[in-house]
Nucleic acid binder design. Structure first.
Lengths: 217, 217
DNA sequence: GGCTAAGATATTGTTCAACAATTCTCAATA
DNA sequence: TATTGAGAATTGTTGAACAATATCTTAGCC
């Protein structure tokens, strides 16, 4: 066993949260969960800390931990950071390792193949990989880790999205265009396109969140 | 008491680490520290998690927690991320809230006053505040938090620096120049200057680390 | 009826003691 | 010198207990 119990428990909870089994806002009771998963409260608390670090849950003193609720302000902020990190990647594209540049194109290829066979879940996943690959062009472990955390947070917000197809389809062609600009060394143009790209995506998500907000009111 | 015991303990350890009382590489024994601070092992472990989150310590399974050792590769990476975040701030300067822009100038003023009276410790602190203020121009809570973590990590590396004056003095005038470019709306020039600025600072630190490396060999 | 306040209940925060699992130490051996 | 293996030391995990805090209930009041 190379993973601690707390790490395994955190893994189970992570899956349940990302799978929708534990919707945003749910309170994670120490006693109930500990009994359910067969671990002590102390170990469960260590698992909670790990998830707090991934910002999948929030911890409120004397009140417990809750599945993170990602509101429109959070989404806006996440896109601000993404813009900073992905732009840095695009800027570094010229001097990036060939393997890192290849990963960008590979992600776009993958997304297009998934779209061709109508697997929109996989398209969504490949799209996230594409953006992570953009940021990874910087060759920075800390930027990679930051992107992973940001995209995990964003996945929580995507739970509120109705149709993955409606959201991802328009961006397939833009991903390809962006990848081509990078291959051709058009860095300034790529940076400009990336900026408007992210702005448009943000607007789409905010629109969907507002709709869902309306439903629940 | 609005702070948990674990948070207070983490605070004590943070001070000891940043104050140099616990040098990089030191192993933090649960039994010894718990006895010293008068808290149980479980509480101490929660405090450790908080410090791991701040990346002041690292946790190795079954081996314990150690004060973080920041090596040249880390410093280089930290500067990569800083460049991404501070450049994003500079880019957002035009539309930033007046209070955020004022904070940049205020930090430069503060540093110059501290230098005038020879308080180089305070100059160092004001310099960090200046760079945090640059990143904060984005108006993003996540970028602010990320910068705080990065600068905390960097402070660990500064322990190896011989003279704060030798390192910070040359940058006083460049800080002022950068702030002025921002005030005058010269954003492109500011971004260029920031890039070379950070490259130069990185070289200086790496040089100092290499020197110290030589001493210990 | 609705509101406030006091008390009862449930949950988290912290400690302790014990044992299991893993790593480290170091002497004996080839 | 390198290796191995037993013993020591340390971390990982558990369960129970009590304290501190939050939440719920209910009695009393307007």
């Amino acid at each position: 066993m190379t993973l601690s119990t707390a790490q395994r428990v955190a893994g189970v909870l992570r899956d349940r949260i990302e799978g929708g089994g534990l919707p945003p806002g749910t309170r994670l009771s120490e006693e109930a969960l500990g009994r359910d998963l067969g671990v002590s409260r102390n170990t469960l608390r260590e698992a909670f800390r790990l998830l707090v670090h991934e910002s999948l849950v929030v911890h409120r003193l004397n009140r417990g931990v809750f599945v993170r609720v990602v509101d429109p302000a959070d989404v806006t902020d996440i896109y601000r950071v993404r813009a900073a990190l992905e732009r840095a990647g695009v800027r570094a594209a010229a001097g990036a390792a060939p393997a890192l540049r290849a990963a960008v194109t590979a992600a776009v290829d993958h997304a297009e193949r998934a779209a061709a066979r109508g697997d929109w879940q996989e398209v969504a996943s490949a799209d996230l990989r594409f953006h992570r690959a953009l940021a990874a062009l910087s060759g920075s472990p800390r930027i990679d880790a930051a992107m992973d955390r940001l995209l995990a947070e964003l996945r929580l917000a995507f739970h509120a999205m109705p149709s993955p197809r409606r959201f991802h389809e328009p961006f397939l062609v833009r991903n390809r265009a962006l990848a081509r600009l990078l291959e051709d060394g058009e860095h300034a143009a790529a940076e400009r396109e990336l900026t408007t790209y992210l702005d448009d995506a943000l607007e789409l998500i905010l629109g969907a969140l507002r709709e869902r907000e309306g439903e629940n009111a």
